[in-house]
Nucleic acid binder design. Structure first.
Lengths: 230, 230
DNA sequence: GAACCAAAGATCGTATATGATTTGTTATAC
DNA sequence: GTATAACAAATCATATACGATCTTTGGTTC
């Protein structure tokens, strides 16, 4: 409705796609939630065909799992899935940071520092939701100039999958969050100083790897509640 | 038909998917070839719905491009697409090699060396097709043990896209092919010697990067024929 | 009471049909 | 001869309908 100069008419499949996707991102459709074609179709006043197409697209992007003759549900990463995705992200983000570094100017660095400072504030005022948001923004600034679109695409895909656990219980674990803020500053300083690309890459990668380690510690001390299964 | 103990009954969508895909891989559907839903459906004696689904899946995998109300065609990588994909592959394959290294035993190394030797033979007997095949096999042996499935998946996806140019004119350029054989040996030696993981990763990545450089040189000297547009 | 079987219900998979959009073609004006 | 407009053909997008498959429920047997 509030489309500015958007596409003339959005396809029904497109509509279903963005509708489901935003529901997932907003946490309304939690991991494990069953996506029933007919129900969604009825809700959106379209037939099942475009809904089916939308769901398969979401499946390809890793947000949804689909089983033949059984149906679709919002993806639930098991622990190994989480670990491998984080590991892959450490590789991809490291490389993306390295490739972006030469194109990041003083303005971008200043903007990133500002975001990072606000993240620190969030820690004081205990605002996990905003913190997660800012974290994403920080990475966007960092990668916006990456000359390899293909690589960026894979990074976003990884973020998608990880959003499955975006219950902000973990991403705001004080220890991890604080570490994140500090290391962000470190990476920015490296870029600013014109450090060798490999050094930048390894720093960025190590950051993500330490986040993964923090996740493991967190797992060990807290039992995660099992996801809702409506 | 010659399914051994395959799925009870393959879905039509699955059928269409693998049919189109193999046609692309065999070079029957060349880059730029238009994929008309109705025509394929008729050919396979199915309706357009599963064909449409197959095509959108291929689109998600990067083998096909699709435009609303216009149709699908086999993807054509432009030069920047090729470069970015190669760059991404250098990163992914490097990391995969590093992660696999600890799990590659003497048998696997021997097998890889044998494949590599046959690749050298192919150079003498000028057998580009077999060479490409062996190259893939070599990489399979190298990555089979990678503990990160997610990463492997991305590598395969990259290979898919690159297959678009699998006209074997380039992959068999003598200089590049010979270099490839030599460097494969180098990587195997590194793994065998128990070199640090970072060293292994960088070697593997550098190999792919040099392949990309070779591509550029090749481009400079040979004008690629523009893809067929039926 | 537990295990098994059968029938009902829910949901998916696909064929067919029709409306919507794009592309190609022909005729007319200048 | 070129450009434009109207029309025709091709193709895509989606609704509807029905058969296929899985899941669940209720009953029966041991």
């Amino acid at each position: 409705m509030s489309d500015l100069v958007g596409t003339a008419t959005r396809s029904k499949s497109e509509l279903a796609y963005s509708w489901i996707r935003s529901r997932i991102e907003e946490g309304i459709f939690v991991p494990g939630y069953r996506l029933v074609l007919g129900a969604i179709a009825k809700e959106l006043h379209v037939s099942v065909v475009p809904v089916r197409e939308a769901i398969r697209r979401l499946e390809a992007e890793g947000l949804v799992t689909f089983e033949r003759n059984v149906g679709a549900q919002v993806a639930m990463l098991n622990e190994t899935g989480y670990v491998t995705t984080m590991q892959t992200l450490s590789i991809l983000e490291g490389a993306a940071t390295m490739l972006s570094a030469p194109f990041i100017d003083a303005n971008a660095i200043a903007a990133a520092r500002a975001v990072n400072a606000e993240m620190a504030d969030c820690l004081d005022h205990f605002d996990p939701h905003r913190f997660t948001e800012l974290n994403r923004e920080f990475h966007s600034i960092l990668f916006e100039q990456c000359p390899n679109d293909n690589l960026l695409d894979l990074v976003h895909r990884g973020w998608n999958s990880l959003n499955m656990l975006r219950d902000s219980t973990f991403s705001f674990v004080p220890g991890r969050a604080h570490q994140s803020v500090v290391e962000h500053d470190g990476i920015l300083a490296l870029i600013e100083s014109g450090a060798p690309s490999l050094e930048i890459e390894l720093a960025a990668r190590a950051h993500r790897t330490r986040t993964l380690d923090a996740f493991h510690e967190y797992q060990a001390s807290h039992k995660r509640p099992s996801p809702v299964q409506p």
